[in-house]
């Protein structure tokens, strides 16, 4: 399995009236062909901004990618011309978004919205594109696809719209599908259906997936690898089993400690992580998690640790060895 995507030192900032927001602060990660990478972290930790940066969809102004490389099939996405990146978007790399209620254009039919990528990237004519659109809708299990293809988004439920989004994403057989919290806006039963659908389609098509979520349960069932992000940094990166069995970063431990467990004692309380993430405009000099960290030592407040390998395919950015939750 070759490397599909290699991100090095990606750094994205937003230049606002209040100051420079350090949204993504130099992250590195690799993604192999056909692999599923989960990116987890709380709101505002830079998950979405990092993948939007790869797609070069950061609203600019105020946002700007200020540094880094993103090698995809031998080319740096961040150095491409507008025209080159457009030929990648929706074609080699597709993206689906959080809220299917607002991510589809209300005034265009499903056919118009799915077909346009087919016409653009695969050079199909209207008739071919329509036929393919119906096939795609059938592939994402939309019942009666041939009759629903000319409906408008408001005639679909939330789950069905997310299926349409997925069909749209898969239309040009991408090598990489980026899913930005695609199930967050859906209710739980629909979430499960969408996750199953993506798993099956992934098996059929064999694309790589980056799945962004704040739901650790979703990641456990779906991903091969996990990156945990905090305040614009990747603080831990590991294969999914290792992440759950042997978390090494206090933040990851905190996240896992705040999930309810079916096998826990009934009276057992959840342990939330106290405090709030740092202000991304005025970042502290040390580790960004240090003020909230139970294990913090003096060094943590002065120096920000780099991501370092601690075990096979497992790296952590922390000065303290917190193996197994002990100090």
């Amino acid at each position: 399995m070759g490397t599909l995507l290699q991100v090095k030192g990606l750094k994205t900032q937003f230049f606002t009236q209040d100051g420079v927001v350090n949204a993504v602060n130099g992250i590195d990660f690799d993604l192999n062909e056909g692999e599923t990478l989960g990116i987890v972290g709380e709101s505002g930790c830079g998950k979405s901004v990092s993948v939007l940066s790869l797609m070069r969809l950061i609203p600019s102004p105020p946002g700007r990618i200020v540094g880094g490389e993103a090698w995809f099939q031998g080319r740096d996405l961040l150095k491409m011309s507008e025209e080159e990146i457009r030929s990648v978007r929706g074609n080699k790399i597709a993206m689906i978004f959080q809220d299917p209620m607002t991510s589809l254009n209300p005034v265009l039919t499903i056919n118009q919205q799915v077909s346009e990528a087919l016409e653009l990237h695969l050079g199909m004519d209207k008739r071919q594109a329509r036929k393919r659109t119906i096939e795609l809708l059938e592939m994402v299990r939309i019942p009666d696809a041939a009759n629903r293809v000319d409906d408008y988004p408001h005639q679909f439920s939330g789950g069905m719209r997310q299926r349409v989004m997925i069909a749209m994403g898969l239309s040009c057989n991408p090598q990489l599908l980026i899913a930005d919290e695609p199930t967050t806006a859906l209710d739980v039963t629909i979430q499960a259906q969408i996750i199953d659908l993506v798993k099956q389609l992934k098996k059929e098509i064999g694309m790589a997936v980056i799945w962004i979520t704040h739901d650790l349960g979703v990641v456990a069932g779906l991903a091969d690898r996990v990156n945990v992000m905090y305040a614009g940094y990747i603080v831990e990166s590991a294969d999914v089993k290792d992440m759950y069995a042997d978390p090494r970063h206090p933040y990851t431990l905190g996240l896992l400690g705040s999930i309810p467990r079916l096998d826990a004692e009934r009276k057992a309380k959840l342990t939330p992580i106290e405090g709030l993430p740092p202000d991304l405009i005025d970042m502290p000099p040390g580790c960004p998690f240090a003020p909230r960290c139970r294990y913090a030592i003096d060094r943590c407040l002065e120096e920000n640790p780099k991501l370092e390998t601690v075990a096979r395919r497992h790296s952590v950015a922390c000065w303290v060895d917190v193996t197994g939750g002990k100090r």
Partner: peptide
């Protein structure tokens, strides 16, 4: 600023389209 405009850009359409 709507989400569906971002979706359209993510499809690789030209800014004009």
């Amino acid at each position: 600023r709507e989400d569906y405009i971002r979706t359209a850009r993510a499809k690789g359409l030209t800014e004009r389209a």
